[in-house]
Amino acid sequence: MKFAVIITLKKDVLDPQGKVVEQTLQSMGINSLKNLRQGKYIEIDLIESDEKIARNIIEEMCKKLLVNLIIEEYKIRKI
């Protein structure tokens, strides 16, 4: 069973990389750009057929290693 974890900085945490990408896109003439935040995307393949159990395992991975909960937040998607 495959999952994607999307990790982004929390709203209040400064995202200097995202800011630079945003400013560059704006300077390229994309005027409709309002806000951009940069993050990480991780694909995980699990040997587990029960989705609920699988999601719990991914949650545990996020909390124990993949995400720094002080500054980051995450979303889990089945893919």
Partner: peptide, 16 residues
């Protein structure tokens, strides 16, 4: 910081 022995976070330098 990552072990939790000290609190807070060390972010990317402001000027990148």
């Amino acid at each position: 910081i990552e072990t939790g022995l000290l609190q807070g976070a060390l972010l990317r330098n402001k000027n990148l």
